[in-house]
């Protein structure tokens, strides 16, 4: 069997360029302005939104990475679920997708077929159509999608518009990065690996569908930057997010793995990035690591007015049983993120 991982330096969302480094690069680009561009990259949101007419906007996003698992079809499914996620996180519905492929010249094409089939399965499940793509030779395998969806311009779920008094819901368990690190260290148990793989393949479609019946204030999906970086982004300048570390859902073995220092480089980069924005106080080391853990195809993290929170949570739990209320929104305090 060929090894997808053998020539990869790092896989999944853990391979993302750090948030600090990235913003430095982006700052040299000109600011484009077009009144129809409702959400652009200056907003650091999950996807771009462009208005077509009063009732229709298109949402556009692209995502690809190198393998974090050895199974080709599984990698295809995870990469596609991850790429589609940004459309769901904006409140949109995927319409069509294009494949993005980098593949080593010396590797058998059969495995590439498996990757693309895995991706196609997820595109079908999303109710979208695959309509083309682009493939090049490269030293390292990479796969992902460019996805276009539609959305009502009056109902965009931005990532930085929570309202003080709202409650925060996280739909998927944390710890995917830690479990995959434990797997690389050959210290993960089968059940934990299965939980992580199942979570990464699961479309955020189902949780998002439940959310459409509720007035969502803000929403994003958790990526390689980890929960805390996304929480900080959501807090913006006008609010602070109070998180309840003891309520966070996580893959149960990940807590012990974090305590055993099965840690990723990305989590440490995330920790450095969060300096000065959060005080961990007496939060256990393992919970700190879970909050910094890079997620591949992570869950939705959303802010909803408190009167709706419990009902929305119950609805989401029908499709994401580990979903939980993990915090609340306050007026801006000394720090953007508080833990209690």
């Amino acid at each position: 069997m060929i090894s997808l991982l053998s020539n990869c330096t790092s896989g999944g969302c853990g391979a993302k360029i750090g948030p600090g480094e990235l913003s430095k690069v982006l700052s040299v680009l000109p600011a484009f302005s077009d009144p129809k561009l409702l959400v652009g990259f200056d907003a650091s949101d999950d996807a771009a939104v462009y208005q077509i007419d009063a009732d229709t906007a298109i949402v556009s996003t692209v995502d690809f990475f190198s393998p974090m698992v050895n199974d080709s079809r599984l990698f295809g499914r995870i990469a596609a679920a991850n790429a589609l996620s940004d459309v769901y996180a904006m409140g949109g519905t995927p319409l069509f997708a294009l494949n993005l492929v980098c593949y080593p010249e010396h590797m058998e094409l059969e495995a590439l077929g498996e990757i693309l089939s895995g991706g196609a399965e997820k595109i079908q499940e999303a109710g979208a159509v695959l309509c083309g793509g682009h493939s090049i030779y490269d030293k390292e395998t990479k796969y992902g999608l460019a996805v276009t969806g539609r959305l009502d311009p009056k109902r965009i779920w931005r990532n930085n518009t929570p309202v003080p008094g709202d409650q925060l819901i996280l739909t998927k368990p944390l710890g995917v990065g830690i479990v995959m690190a434990a797997l690389r260290g050959e210290m993960a148990d089968e059940q934990a690996v299965q939980a992580a793989l199942s979570s990464m393949q699961r479309l955020n479609k189902y949780a998002a569908e439940k959310m459409h019946s509720f007035p969502i204030s803000a929403c994003t999906d958790i990526t390689g930057f980890g929960l805390l970086a996304h929480a900080r982004e959501m807090a913006g300048d006008t609010t602070s997010l109070l998180l309840y570390p003891s309520e966070l859902p996580y893959i149960s073995q990940a807590y012990a793995y974090a305590g055993d220092y099965l840690l990723t480089a990305a989590a440490q980069r995330n920790r450095n990035y969060m300096q000065g924005f959060v005080e961990f106080g007496d939060t256990t080391f393992a919970l700190q690591e879970l909050m910094l853990d890079p997620q591949t195809s992570g869950g939705l993290f959303l802010s909803v007015p408190k009167p709706y929170a419990q009902e929305l949570l119950s609805a989401i739990q029908e499709v994401e049983p580990q979903a939980a209320i993990v915090g609340e929104v306050l007026l801006a305090q000394d720090l953007p993120i508080l833990l209690r």
Binding site: A181, R184, Y261, L262, L263, T264, A265
Partner: peptide, 11 residues
């Protein structure tokens, strides 16, 4: 070697 391998070996 990429994390977590250095930490595992050191431990």
């Amino acid at each position: 070697l990429a994390c977590p391998i250095p930490v595992i070996r050191a431990k």
